[in-house]
């Protein structure tokens, strides 16, 4: 947590335990890279690392948004569909107006996503329906809208302006820089701003949040807007990176995103975890994918490994939680 280090007082051993979570992912990453590199030294080549980071950037932006929602004890399953809609919208826009600047394309994508986020947030807030159900619904609705609009058509790289494709493939890894900016800004807001802390509070105890006078409804909608907006942004990154967009872009991606978030140590019941963890989770999952390809292991195993990692992550969280709880009980047992 370098970027937001504050002059904190003494660190208790408890913080170390809680921080170990991110440490664990880093260790797993190092191990994975080491093993793969021994088997095939080319894994550590510049091009390979570059590919991994570029692919991670898209997943990480999605994971950061998802983490914000999960911290409030909600979930956003519609992100894959939002990514698809945003990518196709921006692709179509650029097809027709090749002159528009990349920044504008990014804003349009984020705007499309944010609008989807408003829809999710409002349905969760006023419909009083669990986010799981609402976003499962919008997952299909948004995908359906994209199919209806796109039909069978596909936007190819040669139809997109070179300046835009350059943004995704230039020597300067813009995608990665953008993802890091998103990550740092979100991390600072979540850690050091009242609004961010209120999101944790809501996830930690929705009832207490209500009683504490936190505007729970507004914050819920806000979290979905962030998640949607970032999914929209990821859609533009997707378009710039791959150049080929059809109505199926990003299908099934929501599960990768949730996996990254969970592996990254964001508690599914809300209230704890960091976007750093979520981004590291995204990096780990992407690296596994690449490593399996380099090691010439059947891609089929990737899913099994991701599944195993999720179970491991949840198991580790449970174990840590039990230990920490026992430790806290001991520390708290003083009779005045």
């Amino acid at each position: 947590m370098t970027a937001v280090e504050l002059p904190a007082p003494k660190r208790s051993s408890l913080d170390v335990v809680l921080r170990a979570r991110e440490l664990g992912i880093v260790l797993a990453l190092v191990l994975l890279v080491a093993v793969t590199t021994i088997s095939n030294p080319r894994f550590l080549s510049g091009q390979s690392i570059r590919d991994i980071l570029l692919n991670t950037a898209i997943l990480a932006v999605l994971a950061v948004g998802q983490a914000v929602v999960v911290i409030t004890r909600n979930i956003d399953l519609s992100v894959g569909s939002v990514l698809g809609l945003s990518a196709f919208t921006v692709g179509t826009l650029l097809q027709n107006y090749p002159g528009i600047p990349v920044v504008f394309a990014l804003l349009v994508g984020a705007g499309v996503g944010a609008a989807c986020g408003v829809l999710n947030g409002v349905l969760v807030r006023y419909g009083n329906v669990p986010a799981l159900v609402v976003t499962l619904g919008t997952l299909y609705v948004i995908r359906g809208v994209t199919y209806f609009w796109a039909g069978g058509s596909q936007i190819n790289a040669d139809e997109l302006p070179p300046s835009f494709l350059n943004f995704g493939t230039a020597d300067i890894p813009w995608l990665v820089i953008l993802a890091v900016v998103v990550l740092v800004v979100t991390a600072v807001v979540l850690r050091s701003y009242r609004t961010g802390r209120e999101l944790y509070a809501m996830g930690s105890s929705p009832q207490a949040a209500q009683l504490a006078g936190i505007p729970v409804g507004r914050r819920t909608i806000g979290a979905f807007v962030v998640s949607g907006g970032l999914a929209g942004l990821a859609g533009v990154l997707f378009a710039a990176r791959f150049g080929t967009i059809d109505a199926a872009a990003g299908t099934g991606m929501e599960l990768n995103v949730v996996a990254a978030v969970v592996v990254g140590g964001v508690a599914v019941f809300g209230g704890s975890g960091t976007v750093w963890g979520a981004a590291l989770g995204a990096l780990l999952l992407t690296t596994i994918g690449s490593a399996l390809a380099v090691l010439e292991i059947n891609q089929f195993w990737q899913q099994a490994i991701v599944g195993g990692l999720i179970l491991l992550a949840i198991g580790a969280d449970r174990l840590v939680a039990v230990r920490v709880a026992a430790g806290l009980k001991k520390r708290g047992s003083h009779v005045g």
Partner: peptide
Amino acid sequence: IYQEPTLFPDLSVAENIAMGRQ
């Protein structure tokens, strides 16, 4: 102060006290 305290279990004690007035 309610019969069943309404704290945020995941947040620090200091943060629980200061919530909204940090």
